[in-house]
Simulated assay, not measured.
Amino acid sequence: MQLGLKDRLFVVTGAAQGIGSAIVKSLVEEGATVAALDIDAEGLQALASLAGVRTYAGDLSRAEDAHRLCKRVLDEQGAVHGLVTAAGGVRGQVGKPLESVSEADWHSIFNANVDAAMWCAQVFAPAMKAAGSGRIVTLSSGAGLRPSLTGIQSYAAAKHALVGLTKQLALELGPDGITVNSVAPGFVLSNPSTARQWEAFGQARQEQVLHGIHMRRLGCADDIADAVLFLCSERAAWISGQILSVDGGHA
């Protein structure tokens, strides 16, 4: 299957590790060029040597900073064909009782998972409108469709909000030839944070989670990257406003 990604420029946020890094590498393998964005400047160094990749370090959670960084991408690289918002995660948090959740913890997860996607879309969507086509793919989660295995209230709420943003942008941007979809991963061992979460479950809980997956295995970053590439491709030209669960089957 020809995906039609050769020589097209995609912006990937949260690119420094895990799923974001896998998406960058997969896009490059298909002949695309990539602007890789992340707050982790050191982590981006591993991508800087890849042909067709330029890295941009910065905090996307604040509108002013995100707009500045995204406009720099446009100034330096020109037309953008797609945006993949993989920035997010639990920001080092663990599940705790409702009464113990602080305002700062609540907002930090929303800033990373929802706000960053919004601010980047504000800059790149007009460029796609001008071209008459584009792709936006958000990375939500099974936690955006049901309660979160993490037990983190703000994470579940933020991912539900990201699903809502995805569907709203699909409605708004569709007339301009821009598709907007989301990939909702199940439990994926993709970085040190998810590895720690998995270990913290303990054997009994791990077995329970695996028993609830039809394929009886956890996901890997490439499983998610493959789904993202399809939604970025010409083969997905009439798919928009959809949430694609990539979770091995959920019992």
Results as ranks from 00 to 15, higher is better:
Met215Glu: 13
Phe201Ser: 01
Ser182Met: 04
Ala170Phe: 06
Ala225Leu: 10
Gly151Asn: 09
Asn181Trp: 02
Leu165Arg: 02
Phe201Trp: 07
Pro185Leu: 12
Ala156Thr: 15
Leu169Met: 11
Val228Cys: 06
Pro192Ile: 12
Leu165Asp: 00
Glu199Ile: 02
Pro185Cys: 08
Thr194Glu: 04
Val183Met: 11
Ile178Val: 01
Phe187Met: 10
Arg217Glu: 09
Gln197Ala: 14
Pro185Asn: 10
Thr166Asp: 05
Tyr155Ala: 06
Ser193Leu: 13
Asn191Trp: 12
Ser154Met: 11
Met215Arg: 14
Leu210Ser: 09
Leu173Met: 06
Leu218Trp: 10
His160Gly: 14
Ala170Gly: 05
Ala158Pro: 00
Leu218Gly: 10
Met215Gly: 00
Ile178Asp: 05
Arg196Glu: 15
Ala221Tyr: 02
Phe230Met: 01
Gln208Trp: 00
Ile178Tyr: 01
Ala227Gln: 10
Gly164Ala: 13
Leu171Arg: 15
Glu199Pro: 04
Leu169Trp: 14
Ser190Gly: 08
Gly164Met: 12
Ile152Ala: 15
Val188Arg: 05
Leu173Ala: 08
Ala158Tyr: 00
Ser148Leu: 07
Gly177Glu: 01
His214Pro: 01
Asn181Val: 05
Asp226Lys: 15
Leu218Ser: 13
Gly174Ser: 09
Leu162Asn: 05
Ala156Trp: 08
His214Asp: 10
Asn181Gln: 07
Ala227Pro: 07
Gly151Val: 07
Glu172Phe: 07
Pro185Asp: 11
Thr166Glu: 09
Arg196Trp: 11
Ala157His: 12
Pro185Gln: 08
Leu189Gln: 12
Gln153Met: 15
Gln153Phe: 15
Asn181Arg: 06
Gln203Glu: 12
Gly151Thr: 09
Phe187Val: 12
Ile152Glu: 15
Leu165Glu: 04
Asn181Pro: 07
Leu165Gly: 04
